[in-house]
Structures are given as C-alpha cells and as structure tokens.
Write a protein that binds this DNA or RNA. Structure first.
Lengths: 188, 188
DNA sequence: CGGAAGATTTGATCTATATCAAAAACTACC
DNA sequence: GGTAGTTTTTGATATAGATCAAATCTTCCG
C-alpha cells in the first residue's frame, strides 16, 4: 500500500475512499538499483515515478557529456516533464543515484483519474505550484555570477541531499567545470 | 467583453455560459502606458494580468540594477508568481515596455472560480503546463556556455518580441553585460 | 525644433574560470 | 583484499567576457 504517496496527496487534498481505491488499483511498486536507468531519451515518457526512498538524476547529453538537469528525492514525482505531459520525445534521461523505491503511474491512468476525480485536478494545480517554486529557485541560482555563489546557493537549496551527489554531477548542474568546483570546495 | 481572454481559455477547456458570466462579472479592463509600473515588489501581488496587447517586463533589483527575469506579451498572464500564489512578498517588479492593455483578475475572485468551476482547475493545470515549458526552455538557455549561444537561443525563443526589447534589458536577462551583447550584435 | 537624459557602441585592460594534463584518492567487484 | 576503473584533486596556461572609460547615437519632451 502506497502510504507515503497517500500522505503526499493529503498535503493538498482530502483523499476519498473511492480515489484511494482507484489509485491503489492503478499504481505499481518498482525498485531501481544504484546506477540503473529509469528513463531513456529515445522513448516517450509514459510513466511518472513517485520516489519513496532514494535519489535520482535527470540529465541530458551535450557533446558526449552528461549534463545534470536536476535531482529528485523522497516525496517527489519525477519524469521527463515535457515528454510526459505532451507525449513526445525529449532529451532527458533519468537514472538512480542510489537504490531507489518508487510508485509508478502510467500517463493514461493519470488521465483517467483527472477525468473522474475533479480533486485530482486541484491536486495537480497545487502541487505544480510547489514544483514551480523549485524552478524559480533554480533560475535565480543560475543568475548568480560567480561559481562560488552558485555553489553556496546550491548547498543551501539542497541542504539535505547535496552530500549524496558526486562532485562532477553538481558541477554540470551548476554549469561550471569539476576542476573549478573542486577548487572551491578545497578553500575552507 | 474580454473576447481575447475567452479565446485563450477555450484553447484548454470549453467555457460554459455560467463560467463566462462569472468571468465577465469579475474581470476588469486596465491599460498601462509605456514605462508605467504594474506591480511593485513592496506589495503582495493580488492581481493577475492577462495581456491583450503590449509587452511587459518582470524584473528585480540587484546592487541597484534592474535585472530582467522574463518578458510577457499578448495572450499571456503575468503576475509575480510566488507572491500571487502564496500571497506573500517577493522581489519582483513588473512594468510595461509598451502601451499595454490587460484584463485583470483578483486573487480572491480566482479562488472563487476554482471553488465553483472544476473546469477552472483543469484550465489552470493545463495552462501551467505551457508556462512550465517556458521555464524549462529558460533554464536550458541559461546553461548555454557562451554569451553568443545564449543570445542566439534567446532570439530563436522570443522570435516575435526580441526586437521590441531594449538591449540592456536583454543583456541582464541573459546574465551578460550590455557591452558584450553589443559586441555580439555588431559582428554580422 | 533643440537640448538633455538615456541607450548603445567602441576601446583598453584585467580576472575568473575554462582547458589541458597528470597525479592522487576513492570504489567496487572478481 | 588487490587491482582496474572511476572520481577528485592539483598544476600550468589560455581566453571569454567583465570592468572602467569615453564617445556616439536615440528619444522624447518643453
């Protein structure tokens, strides 16, 4: 039973027994091992993953290199946003940085829930607001001029997970080289 | 009658006569002259503006300077997002870069509409998806390494409005100096 | 229409960070 | 538990773009 997921929903809406039952019927549990690929960019993203335990990375390739787009951890949904919403291909890969347990919902099940439970629409609107906040924060951080400012802001924003992410992935997230980030960390 | 606004809604949902009437009753028309301030950061943002004609800038102050956050034009809603959604202060100012005509909705009227018209929830969810796309695009663009790449991407993304925005404001949007942007423009 | 304020361009340095290269420190798996 | 592979650190240079300064070019209002 996806208790953690129910608790997450109830931050935004009251879950009726009927909705609870439909969710339970349509959601699947799935685990990923550290390093395992969750979504490959050559496919359309048809599943959304609610992370119960673990840490994942959304990234894309530029000049053969993996560039981190963002990181998601416990109590968050992760998918390839544009691909999932518009059901078209996009550039993002998703992999697990730690052993990760998820609850998985297929896009057509989600559509069914939207069509039959108006409160799901409200949930989506409100929780999107939260995600929105993250994006604004991200944009803010990107405009910090110096590499040090960016890194300090990153550590403040991801206080709970920054020490679980390899240095090189943080560097690509911040748009700086790993050498520079290493030097920044060294000085203190 | 806010015909342009109705058309916008109908991209996402069918507007019932009842919802149409409520919208009409609650929305106000307001014009702003070029250079006029639409929202000041010292206030909580209680209104959302649907732009019928014109161009506005959302910006904030850093070290006395105005930094452009983004630009909005025809057929888009503009407000100070976090301030409007969470009804708390935030750093953003909004002003008109051209003479601008808007339809204005107060936050408590919007809440009323959400509470009485479930299709408004759906509208919000779907249209937020669009805005989301813009943000993703924005983040992508910010990670382009060179100033030239950023500018080229900006021109492609804002093809219809980039020539309506002063150079200095574009530079601050891109996080580069106006001297650098001027030099980039010169070479061709 | 003319002049002042603002916006853009041009020029001459300076510096933070990229790049290239190699050593050192981890990690993990057979 | 040792060794191959990965990740991080350290070092030496190169460079894009910042900064400072001043000259033009626009705009707009009295």
């Amino acid at each position: 039973m996806p208790e953690a997921l129910f608790r997450h929903f109830e931050k935004y809406i009251r879950l009726s027994a009927a909705l609870r039952a439909e969710l339970t019927a349509r959601i699947l549990f799935r685990s990923f091992k550290k390093g395992e690929l969750i979504h490959h960019a050559s496919y359309i993203c048809t599943h959304s993953y609610f992370i119960q335990r673990g840490l994942v990375r959304v990234y894309f390739l530029k000049d053969e290199k993996e560039i981190s787009e963002y990181f998601s951890c416990e109590e968050e949904w992760v998918n390839s946003p544009k691909s999932f919403i518009q059901q078209q291909q996009d550039i993002y890969f998703i992999d697990a940085l730690e052993d990760t347990d998820t609850w998985v919902l297929e896009v057509h099940d989600l559509v069914y829930l939207f069509d039959h439970f108006p409160e799901m629409e409200r949930y989506a609107r409100l929780s999107m607001g939260t995600v929105f906040g993250h994006y604004m924060e991200r944009i803010t951080s990107m405009r910090f001029t110096t590499a040090r400012e960016k890194y300090v802001h990153f550590c403040r924003t991801y206080e709970d997970i920054y020490h679980r992410i390899p240095l090189g992935m943080i560097a690509s997230y911040l748009g700086i080289t790993q050498e520079t980030l290493s030097r920044i960390r060294a000085e203190r």
